[in-house]
Design a protein around this nucleic acid. Sequence first.
DNA 1: CGTGCATTCTTGTCTAACAATCTTAAGACC
DNA 2: GGTCTTAAGATTGTTAGACAAGAATGCACG
Lengths: 228, 228
Amino acid sequence: MSTEARLELGPSSLTDALYASIRKRIVNGEIPQGEKLTEVRLATEYNVARPTAKAALERLTANGLLRRTAHKTAVVPVLDQDEIRDLFFSRVTIEKAAVSALAVTGEVPADAARAQVAIEYAARDRLFEDQVEADIAFHSALVSAVGSRRLSRMHELILGEVHLTMGQYKAHRKAAPSTVASEHAAILEAIRAGDASTAADRMAYHLDQAQSRLLTTLTDGSDEVVPE
Amino acid sequence: MSTEARLELGPSSLTDALYASIRKRIVNGEIPQGEKLTEVRLATEYNVARPTAKAALERLTANGLLRRTAHKTAVVPVLDQDEIRDLFFSRVTIEKAAVSALAVTGEVPADAARAQVAIEYAARDRLFEDQVEADIAFHSALVSAVGSRRLSRMHELILGEVHLTMGQYKAHRKAAPSTVASEHAAILEAIRAGDASTAADRMAYHLDQAQSRLLTTLTDGSDEVVPE
DNA sequence: CGTGCATTCTTGTCTAACAATCTTAAGACC
DNA sequence: GGTCTTAAGATTGTTAGACAAGAATGCACG
């Protein structure tokens, strides 16, 4: 559509583009928790055919960004405490394995270092969404630097929900960005030193802190996720 | 199964049934490595519409049982050594975490114990496919007993490929079933004793043995994947 | 003998439609 | 008036047919 940018090979497929767009709207809280997403609604909103919308919904469901049972409308999930704990348990499992593997080589991934810088800039300028984005990028960089396609795929499987919680609850406002940055730095340092168990421990600590912030936000009355 | 059990709700959806059928044919080597699967072929073979076949292919691709790039025909993948190593690395990550978690409670999952027995029966009767099935069931039972939905989903993400290698290369013929059984028993024992690190170590050892057998089979000329 | 073009195969997307199922609300009965 | 039943509406599951775009193959021509 429109003026046809030939360079940015964004999602070439229509379904991909649709998936990416909806995903972004969900994780940023633009489409709030509990909201229903019907196939026809998306099809008309984006002016695509219903099967296309259906395919996008199925992919979002597979990545945990939507819940849907047979014959029922897809809905943006509301993660309760147990589910958040489950999410972080799975996340810790993957990311501990990742930093342990990285420590063996002692190489700090360049992408992770770059993301680290991006977090600081975003925090300084109070760009909340960018900060979340850079945080996700940091952790993704660590996992993908391991070079295991399957580990990365498993990580991506839960990353959508991670992004969801961060974007929706905006728990990061509570965390002093410098705290996050120093925890990240400590992890990278352990990797560089080749100390696998310390790197894993620091990752576990970092994620435990993040989880605590999230759960606190949730139990406080301050979980103002209410849309209207 | 058999006489119409009203409880076990088999694949209610047509797509589900199609997915399950193709998956079974692939992991059992009935559809050999390198074989192309076009949408129309499946649609005509199973007498379903092309979009239905398409959906099944996409799910199979997502689970690693097929490879497919845009506009090209899906093909049953041939896993080389690097990919098998990657697969087992990912698998170890998940399953070590699972048995560690189980050891904390000290409860041996009933399903795992049952699968253990099933393996012995299948081995005694030389039912190779059942043996593979029971082996998969054993490991799946351990993971699902943790009670983490996301850990199970990540495990399922790679289980298709695990099944694929076992069914295709038939590496299990080389393993004395008693060896596998005793390794399994040792893992359960460590769980029962509440010793997390030992359970994890034993799982790592068990999977390392399995990987070695697989790689040996692969480098030998004996990787006769030919079906008939 | 090699290169370029055209044919053909396959996939991506759309439109239209019907069936099955879930949800909602209205109406009947107590 | 309240509760249960039932019917209408909404939503998804599946199919059919069609067209366009990308990929692969072979043939003709240089």
